[in-house]
């Protein structure tokens, strides 16, 4: 059994590696298939031909495509993504500042989701079949059907336009640099409440229905009836015997969540105009800032592939019977 699991994990590692190779190669060759020369942006057409040739040699643009590809790979893996045409900064600098924002939002939301979903699932199991249970189940279906930007807009309307409790956009206030460190922390938290809440609500609506379903299925099994007949209190039965069994399918759902975390964060960043990697990418598409686009797509691609890898390993470890059919 353990050997089988390691085989699955090894296979997945191999597939992930292959995927990264294909991602990198396809991005490079798409760049070359496109009409136009990126080099043209840097020199005027009136430049002397000899000097232009010299510059081209210096940048290695006179060499064949295969050798250029090797240079490019070397640069990418040493963290050099080139120079942004719009921001006039190295791309790696832009990416490293934006990726912290993205990761902090998405990971906070992910952890919050885990903290909130499990007690909610137990609560629903306690009131199974009552009005509140059905109400929350239906509500979860409605929120699950709503895309994250709709949830975000509703939260903005309720939280910042009607009640003026939270700011609706940006990462910090205009006077951020005049504050002391504790005020800065609170300012950041104040600004990040709504985005994190958006992500948390959307992912809870997805996972709570599965947790509820599997909790109910397990509580109908025979071993629960046997345990109940021995006189164990209901809440201990729920917490110590039903929940651990239901967690297997919950972990599967969590694994699937990791893979789609980044694409959800992209849209949330766009709505709240947070300086994350998704907004950087979309913004640079509009300004045709190709080095930034390529770097963003590559980093996000790496992250998604890594997330899927972690998810698959988790699933293979905890739920080997699971087959990846469409989960909705």
């Amino acid at each position: 059994m353990i050997q089988e699991q390691t085989m699955v994990i090894l296979k997945r590692l191999l597939v992930s590696f292959l995927m990264i190779v294909i991602l990198v190669v396809s991005i490079f060759f798409m760049m070359h298939l496109l009409p136009g020369d990126p080099f043209q942006q840097y020199y005027s057409p009136e430049l002397d031909n000899r000097i232009a040739e010299q510059v081209k040699t210096k940048f290695g643009l006179d060499k064949p495509v295969s050798i250029q590809f090797i240079y490019w790979l070397k640069n990418i893996f040493s963290g050099d993504f080139g120079f942004s045409l719009v921001y006039k900064k190295p791309v790696s600098e832009l990416i490293s500042s934006s990726i912290t924002v993205t990761l902090s939002i998405s990971l906070t939301a992910f952890i919050l989701q885990i903290i909130l979903t499990i007690p909610l699932g137990l609560f629903l199991l306690k009131h199974n079949g009552k009005k509140i249970d059905l109400l929350i189940d239906k509500l979860a279906l409605v929120i699950y059907s709503a895309p994250s930007f709709v949830v975000a807009i509703i939260l903005i309307y309720a939280g910042s336009i009607l009640t003026r409790l939270f700011p609706s956009s940006q990462l910090y206030s205009y006077n951020f640099y005049e504050m002391n460190s504790i005020e800065r922390l609170f300012d950041l938290l104040h600004h990040l409440t709504l985005p994190v809440l958006t992500l948390t609500i959307t992912s809870i609506s997805f996972s709570i229905r599965y947790l509820r379903q599997s909790l109910i299925e397990i509580s109908n099994q025979e071993f629960v009836t046997t345990l109940r007949s021995t006189g164990i209190p209901e809440n201990i039965l729920r917490r110590k015997h039903i929940l651990p069994n239901a967690l297997i399918s919950y972990i599967t759902i969590l694994g699937l969540e990791i893979g789609s975390l980044l694409s959800k964060t992209l849209i949330t960043e766009m709505v709240f105009s947070l300086p994350g990697i998704g907004r950087l990418m979309v913004g640079s598409i509009f300004t045709r800032d190709y080095p930034v686009i390529i770097a963003c797509v590559m980093i996000s691609g790496f992250m998604v592939i890594l997330g899927n890898l972690i998810a698959d390993i988790l699933i293979a470890r905890f739920n080997p019977k699971f087959s990846f059919e469409v989960i909705t």
């Binding site: 597939v15 995927m19 991602l23 798409m30 694409s263 592939i305 899927n308 990846f324």
Partner: peptide
């Protein structure tokens, strides 16, 4: 398997 864990959204944007 390959296509299932490929970052489709980012490729679409690209």
């Amino acid at each position: 398997d390959f296509f299932l864990s490929f970052p489709i959204l980012f490729f679409v944007i690209f």
